[in-house]
């Protein structure tokens, strides 16, 4: 999708917080990304290596915590993890479903040196 724009946002946020903490170097960046967001880790890594050059985040390692998409049926309370295609409730076939997790899309923390 729009991995370049996303990677730029990650860099902005990481640099902002690193400067605030008076870091000399950022070594690791921890991202939490739900399965429902169509983001490809490999392309983020690809852009990251290019755009982080000559910044405080250069060579920082990206870590992806992929949160599974968890759904709950509102009719029978059955909970299930979405693996592939979207389906109705696997227990009672109801379409009255709520998403419990999988939407996550944030920068959780950074590891810095100072």
């Amino acid at each position: 999708m729009h991995e370049l724009a996303v990677t730029e946002s990650v860099l902005d946020i990481a640099c902002k917080h690193a400067q605030k903490a008076q870091a000399t170097k950022v070594t690791d960046i921890y991202l939490v990304i739900g399965r429902l967001s169509s983001i490809v880790d490999d392309s983020i890594e690809f852009y990251w290596n290019i755009i982080s050059k000559d910044t405080i985040c250069e060579e920082a390692q990206l870590h992806f915590n992929r949160v599974p998409a968890k759904l709950v049926c509102q009719e029978c309370a059955h909970e299930y993890i979405l693996e592939g295609d979207l389906t109705a409730c696997q227990n009672c076939q109801s379409v009255n479903i709520r998403v419990l997790s999988g939407d996550e899309f944030h920068l959780e923390s950074i590891e810095i040196q100072r």
């Binding site: 996303v6 946002s9 917080h17 690193a18 944030h106 959780e108 923390s109 810095i112 100072r114």
Partner: peptide, 17 residues
């Protein structure tokens, strides 16, 4: 030199939002 973990928890598209 010290190594520190800094908690952030900021939505990646926060600036856009």
């Amino acid at each position: 030199m010290t190594q520190n973990r800094i908690k952030i928890v900021e939505n990646i598209l926060n600036a856009n939002d």
